[in-house]
Structure formats: structure tokens, C-alpha cells
Design a protein around this nucleic acid. Structure first.
Lengths: 257, 257
DNA sequence: CGCCTGTTTGATCTACCTCAACTGCTGTGG
DNA sequence: CCACAGCAGTTGAGGTAGATCAAACAGGCG
């Protein structure tokens, strides 16, 4: 559990200007001067897949952005039941300024590189320059919308709809990142295990597996590998996801205005 | 449905200084000067119980704080399944700056008085004075935590645990507002119908009713009236709610630093 | 090769849903 | 003042989606 004891520090000290998440992360509204201030205090750190980044209830002395990789937020009940409450990707921000105690586990799902700041230093800069604060507010509002969409999924959707919805989200994100339209034939990998999927969707691992097979047999998807999906029939998949015309949501990836 | 056409405008133009939510709302960090600016553009509006304040997918031209009353946020699937995704009380903020399209219905559960601002005016002031923005960020982060706690409830808790959890939240909030400790004997009213409870908890109305009876028969609560609950045995109730020692959460009402 | 982890598939069980009836209030109108 | 309609809530009987328990399979790795 405490692999965290030996954090890797490979300080591949990259200039912020070249950063792959420069235009989407919390720093995206910063001007050159502000960026320089952040640059001076930032710190890269790598985590292995499966490694715990922060434990539920812990005091966190750092916060920062995901540069590469996928991170999951988990809550656990005493008897071990677990629910994923966030799934974060490159450019997403981890840690809550002014709220030092983590209300959930933070776990690297794939190998992850973080761009970290010390809490107090970051908070100081944030109070000085509103660009950071503004962007963080935007990102938090988007997270909140996404959490609410997820609540609808957890509370009211069937197992089939949950799994289909999850695949649509992943497909959207992948099409987005590849700057390609979301169409039949799109192939992407599911970055998490079936077990994590079940924790995301409020199901058991068996039910997730059965629904994946059902979607495959129903012609909505092809399973190229267990973790590699091809969208065979997007319309069907969206239909099965329960939010057909999807007026509001899911696309948290909305461009930052 | 469109009772909204005839909004009451009773402009009981109250000074911000006397406002009951002055020290908790989005404006709580504002100094006298900033407050005066807000005062100049604010507008009170009252809504009846059951009235729709904003519809899902609508463009909202106003945002603001709840002065009195209870407000619910709902999402609806095409086939009519509904999930409550937020339950807001006095001093909570409604509306998302920079995000004009509402991703959910906003409905007055009790009679509600709102303190409203025009979106563009509010955003302008917000960009000028960071006090507003800072407080809004804090409140949004707290909402997000609360949404995540709720996800845990929806995804993993049993019907019994859901209902017990809901009662504990209400009890906490009531004890808080009354500035009294949370103990056996506390009496409070449930501000929503059984139907709304079921939409909050991702259950049916019948299951909610059955679990209320079970909690009563189990000696955890007394039902003074259908909507009025006495905490008979707080320890049992918390035990049944599933998060016994509750390390992290539920207490979104944390004092603003 | 055999072990381990992740995944699939099958058989059964149960918590919660669905459908239906009934109770108690409150308001309305003859 | 009573009849009764309408709504919120409760209770019961039976059905089902998804959980649980169990077994088998596939791929990677020492």
C-alpha cells in the first residue's frame, strides 16, 4: 500500500512553455510573468500504475495537474465497499486549495506524471493572480457538472445503460483528443480494469462483463482486445446509453470558452 | 408548468448589511464597497413551492443566492426517470458563472426567496473583485465534495443506508442552524415529499416509505408527523447509515475557514 | 510448465421494483 | 355538516435486475 514512500522525482525540468497541457490546465490563463512564478516552484513527480497518490483522510501538502496518465478518486465504506467518485485525465487538477484534508483516495490508474506545487506556495500565487483562480473555478464548475451527470447514471440508469454511457464518454474523450469526429469505427482502449469500471458504475465486475458481452453481441461495439474497443454502431450505443439526444451533458471536455 | 411567466417581484429592498445570509453566502468575503456594488444591482424574487425556477437546457440570464427556502436540482431522462442532483438551502448559490446553459431543472421545494443578479453584471463585478470569486470557488469545491459523497450513497449504499444517511444529513444541518449539538431528541421536519426523497436517493417512493417504517420500528427515529422526525437513537441511525465513524464527509456545512 | 491476475460465463438468490389496494388529511361544494 | 375527491403516504404480494457464489479460461511471467 505505501509504495508512496519511495516517490520518484525524475525532475525532467521542462519549461512550462513546452508543456503538453499548457493550454488546458489550471495555468492556461496565466501570462508569461505568472507562468514564470509557477515554473519556479513546480515539481514533476511520476507514479506507477496502481500507486496510491493520496490516501482518504490524509493531509495533502501538495496539489497540481496531471501531465500524463489517468487518475481515479475513490471513496471506501468501512466494510470495504468502494465507489469511484472521479476519473481524471491529462490537464485535470488534483487537490483542493483551502481544503487540506483529502475526502477520497487518489490512485494512479496508469503510469502518471504530475506537475505539483506546494499548497501554501500555490495558494499564495493564486491569491495574487486571479487568472489561476478563475481557471480553477471554471474547472471546478465543470467537475461539478460531470459529477451530477454521474449521479444520474448511478441513481437511475440500468446496468446496460451505465456501461454504454461509460463507453460513450471514453469514445468522446478519445475523439476529442485525437481531434477527430466521433464516428463508427473509432478504436480506443479502456484505461481501467473491469473491476475499476464496476467501481465507477456502481455495479459488480460480473455485471460489467456481462453487459460488455451483451453490447458486443448486440452489434454496438467490437472487442478487439479485452481493453480495446471499436465503436461498431455509435447510434445504437448512444441509444442504449439512455441519454439519446443528450441535451446537456457528458461532454465535460467543453472548450474553455 | 410555466408558472414562471408571472414571477413575483416584491422588491422588499433590504439592505445587504441586514441580510440573514450575509456571512455565509457568496458575498460573505466582500467589503463595504464591494457590497454596495452588489446592492445596487441585486433583485429579490419569490417563488412558490413547486414552482420551476429554471428548466433543464434553458439559457439563464440570472444567478444568485437562496435567501430563504429549499431548492432542488433535477435531471430527467427521456423516458421520465428523474434523479435529484442537488438539494440547496439558504445561502447556497444557484447558477454557474461563464456557463449560461442550465444542465438541470431548478425547482423551489418550499416557498423560496432568491437574491438575484443579472449574469453579465455579476460576472463583471466578479472579475473586478476577487473576494466574490474566491468565495464562489470555495462554495463550488464544497458542493463538489458533497456531490461525491452523494455518489457513494447512490452507487453503493443499501436502501436502509440511503434513508438513514439522508436523515443524518438533515439532522446535522438542523442542529447546525439551531447552533445546538447533534443529539438524541432533536426534532426536525423533512422539507421534501417522499417522492422527492426517492428522487434524491435513487429509490422508489415505496422503498423509502418502507425504510422509514423500518427505522421507526427499529427505534432509531420517531415519526411525530409524517414529515416530522425525532432522532430517537443517533448512534443507531449513524450506524445504519453506513458511514459510522464518517472520517471525511457529509458535513458540507463546514465553517468558511 | 504452473501460477497469478484479469476476465468471462453459469446457476442461484435477494433487495428492490412494480403493481395494487388502502389509509388518513385537507379542501370543496352541495 | 357531511360527502367525496385528491393527494401524500403506507402496506402487501409477486416479479426481476443485478448481486453472489462458483467455475473455467486466457494471457503473461518466473
Amino acid at each position: 500500500m505505501q509504495i508512496r514512500e519511495v516517490p520518484k522525482l525524475r525532475s525532467a525540468h521542462q519549461k512550462c512553455g513546452d508543456c503538453p497541457i499548457r493550454h488546458r490546465a489550471v495555468c492556461s490563463y496565466c501570462d508569461a510573468h505568472e507562468l514564470a512564478e509557477l515554473d519556479a516552484i513546480k515539481l514533476y513527480r511520476d507514479f506507477d500504475a496502481g500507486q496510491e497518490i493520496v490516501g482518504e483522510g490524509e493531509l495533502t501538502e501538495t496539489l497540481g495537474s496531471i501531465v500524463t496518465g489517468v487518475v481515479a478518486l475513490h471513496k471506501t465504506l468501512e466494510d470495504g465497499r468502494r465507489q469511484m467518485v472521479g476519473l481524471l485525465f491529462a490537464s485535470d487538477f488534483i487537490g483542493r486549495p483551502l481544503r487540506p484534508i483529502a475526502p477520497y483516495d487518489v490512485i494512479a490508474v496508469t503510469p502518471v506524471r504530475m506537475c505539483l506545487f506546494h499548497r501554501s506556495q500555490f495558494e499564495k500565487i493564486m491569491q495574487k493572480h486571479s487568472a489561476l483562480e478563475r481557471r480553477l473555478l471554471e474547472m471546478t464548475l465543470d467537475e461539478l457538472d460531470s459529477a451530477r451527470e454521474w449521479m444520474m447514471l448511478l441513481g437511475r440508469k440500468t446496468a446496460q445503460e451505465k456501461v454504454a454511457s461509460f463507453l460513450v464518454i471514453l469514445a468522446r474523450r478519445n475523439a476529442d483528443l485525437a481531434k477527430r469526429p466521433l464516428t463508427d469505427g473509432l478504436v480506443f482502449t479502456i484505461p481501467i480494469t473491469r473491476e475499476s469500471m464496476s467501481e465507477y458504475l456502481g455495479l459488480t465486475i460480473e455485471t460489467v462483463s456481462r453487459q460488455m458481452t451483451a453490447l458486443r453481441k448486440g452489434g454496438a461495439i467490437n472487442l478487439i482486445e479485452k481493453r480495446m474497443v471499436e465503436i461498431a454502431d455509435l447510434d445504437t450505443l448512444i441509444e442504449l446509453s439512455g441519454d439519446g439526444s443528450d441535451p446537456s451533458g457528458w461532454s465535460r471536455q467543453a472548450q474553455p470558452a
